[in-house]
């Protein structure tokens, strides 16, 4: 679904590249975490997928198409196939929940009857039934992020990009959001999520791609979040990734997350 072939992105000729010869393939229906410190190139990765920026060299394929070959007037069509969620929600404050989600359909010219049918359905998927007429400031952070997710997927994109969607949320709420993203993934949408949240990564056990200074240093299936600095125990954590039980403290934390996540999903 997303394929990077030897992609390099240079913002400033004098500085090191933001992405340096990246090769990566994310398949249809996959759920992948993009982890790494600030400045490691996660956001640049997402921007290249959206064709917000042009790769300095190499090729970026989205849904089998080289984005460099998409003419500027066809970029909107590319973006219709990609949903995006941000850390800061980016809702329209004067619009109700329904109107915020409907906005994404209006601007691409969907008919009113289609909007009337689709929006409540999507709001139900993200667990916001009955809150159609609330304004964003009347919602909790988690609920606002659910609205943002609803808006991102209402046009049924094949890909959902999430740039630290849980960065502003507390752990319990975050797990609820992850439940929503997981559910969307189960329905066949490819999800790529950039995050710093180690608890979530450890809990979800999905593919993890770790970037450091624009280079992929790790790409593992069903992996854990490893810290950037090699510390004592790092090797054990890596072993955990291969299926062994995590350390007891982490286990209890992990259980708490699991409960929270179950609670989050129960709300849906």
């Amino acid at each position: 679904m997303i394929r990077f072939e030897n992609v390099t992105k240079v913002y400033d000729q004098k500085a090191r590249p933001a992405l340096d010869s990246i090769n990566l393939e994310i398949d249809r229906g996959e759920f992948a975490f993009l982890v790494g410190a600030s400045g490691s190139g996660k956001s640049t990765f997402l921007r290249l997928v959206l064709k917000e920026d042009r790769a300095s060299s190499g090729a970026v394929y989205v849904a089998g198409q080289n984005v460099a070959n998409i003419s500027s007037w066809r970029v909107p069509r590319l973006r219709r196939g990609i949903g995006v969620v941000f850390q800061d929600f980016r809702l329209l404050p004067q619009k109700t929940v329904f109107a915020n989600v409907a906005f994404a359909m209006q601007v691409i010219g969907k008919s009113r009857s289609v909007i009337r049918d689709t929006v409540p359905e999507v709001l139900k998927t993200v667990g916001l039934e009955g809150k159609e007429n609330r304004l964003p400031h009347e919602l909790s952070g988690g609920e606002q992020q659910r609205v943002a997710i609803a808006r991102a997927v209402v046009n049924r994109p094949g890909i959902l990009l999430a740039d630290e969607p849980t960065g502003n949320l507390d752990p319990t709420t975050s797990m609820g959001i992850m439940g929503v993203l997981d559910k969307i993934n189960q329905n066949g949408t490819t999800v790529v999520m950039a995050t710093h949240d180690d608890d979530i990564v450890n809990e979800m056990r999905k593919r993890v791609v770790e970037l450091r200074n624009g280079v992929i240093i790790r790409d593992e299936a069903k992996a854990l979040y490893t810290s950037m600095i090699p510390v004592v125990g790092a090797s054990r954590r890596l072993r955990d990734a291969s299926g062994r039980e995590p350390e007891p403290a982490a286990a209890t934390r992990s259980e708490a997350r699991a409960e929270a996540r179950a609670a989050g999903e129960a709300q849906l």
Binding site: L50, F103, G109
Partner: peptide, 15 residues
């Protein structure tokens, strides 16, 4: 804000 969201969800340049 609006125009940023419009771009992201793939609104055409004209809209």
């Amino acid at each position: 804000r609006e125009t940023g969201i419009m771009r992201l969800v793939g609104a055409s340049k004209m809209v």
